[in-house]
Amino acid sequence: MQKGHMSDRRKFILTMARSVGLAGIGALIWSSVLEESVHASLLLRPPGALNEEEFLKTCIKCGLCVSACPYDTLKLAAPGDKKPMGTPFFDAREIPCYMCEDIPCVPVCPSGALSQESVSSNGELDINLAKMGVAVVDPYACIAFWGIQCDACYRACPLLDEAIVLEYERNERTGKHAFLKPVVVPDVCTGCGMCEHACITEKASITILPREVVMGRAGDHYVKGWDKQDQKRVKNARATITKTEISKKSALDSLNDETGLFE
């Protein structure tokens, strides 16, 4: 083969290899941008939203929920918001979800990213079933924990005395007053954010966070023995017993075994 001359086949293979390489670079850059953008921050989704992972692949970013919201609560993330672009979110401190009974934002969703079933019971829409987030109290900044009477969040809560309850406790410092501590009931809390909006401290002492971020999970191996429903889980449970060098003997023998101790 002459120098500088290339067969068509060789040329084709080289061109393809180059293109694939360039595409690979593009894919790496592009995917890192995507990875950054979707894990950028904690954000609150409209009522009925699928979990974040499903939501990101299902939401078509049409903004119909945003248009439907009568309180301008919902916004579409624009560049600079540092949120997955084009997806709806709300900032509870600024404008919370006012829990419309007819939930106008959910039925308009064409893609099912906002699921009507998740906020319906017996075929009727029920905004109280929404799980947009969960309120978390900062007991150091909240002045109710200082002993000053404030029940702004408690009063603002649309599920009054259900999602936030007041816990009475004796104030040892003064000896004659009581604390009225706000305590969130996570099962009931919808994450509407009216408490965060109402909080009187400079930066809100009660904040709505995504449920999957805040809520823990005890795991399957814990069974509530006092709960009949939960106890049923043990019924068909089968234990696998692992034998090791130590567990061959009984626990007591194993502890009393002196071999190797005084050498």
Partner: peptide, 30 residues
């Protein structure tokens, strides 16, 4: 990328969407 990341890869960065969405719903740094 959509397949492997479980995202709508182009829609999340599309300048087209940034522009039309921005004009309708607010531009940000778009």
């Amino acid at each position: 990328l959509s397949f492997f990341m479980g995202l709508t890869a182009f829609e999340l960065v599309s300048p087209i969407s940034i522009l039309h969405r921005g004009l309708i719903f607010g531009m940000g740094f778009g």
